[in-house]
Amino acid sequence: MALLEVNRLHKSFGGIRAVNDLTFSIEQGEILGLIGPNGAGKTTVFEVISGFTSPDSGGVKLNGHDIVGLKPYSLCERGICRTFQLAKPFLNLTVLENVMIGILAKGEPVKTAKEKGNEILKFLNLLDFKDIQAKFLTIGYKRRLELAKALSTQPKLVLADEVMSGLNEKEVMDTMDILKKINGRGITLFVVEHILHAIMALAERVIVINHGAKIAEGTPAEISRNERVITAYLGRGFSDRFQDLSKEKR
């Protein structure tokens, strides 16, 4: 059984259909990518799954249980945690304190939260910054802190909303490694990303949406050859480059 099933999801804002009849599922332990042009509705999909917005119609099931209408914090207890496209660390708290909040929210005492928080920071190579306020971090580290905060809630599924945007090439590589490491712990990842070479290398399966509707689904290689995806989003150039890259690898 799939970890998360999204069934015929609809969401409109006024006259704009942000999500239009979207159906897909996420398997336990995979890395699923979600791509599409700007305004395609990717973030709205995340908002609905994580409980920040309620859908107009359609169902979302986690392990077979309906989760539509649940609040973000209770979804978090059930194992779904999102990161924000615009990183939202607790700016005036230290990096360690940022990570402690999710652990404390689970009911752990302060002392345990400090220990576990330190472990998470070590896992993500953030330990050097643990005592400085989050507002002093660079954007790269802020985004990494977002992932650390997500991990602090002991999630089953992390919804990562553009965790690589605005990063330089080195930071993108680092973040990819981190995402793989997180996935290696058995945590399922659902990743929205604009940095295509990253998501193509990372994801096992990719869903492409445009105007809120799914236009393609498949492995990165299949997606990059798909005519509809090329016209709507990728463009001929990327497709050719990606084919060349794939050939070179072989």
Binding site: R82, F90, L93, I101, A105, K106, S152, T153
Partner: peptide, 15 residues
Amino acid sequence: SAIKEDEDAAEAVGV
């Protein structure tokens, strides 16, 4: 203190 900083972000980590 997390709520004070950012309520949405606090709810996102289970508060």
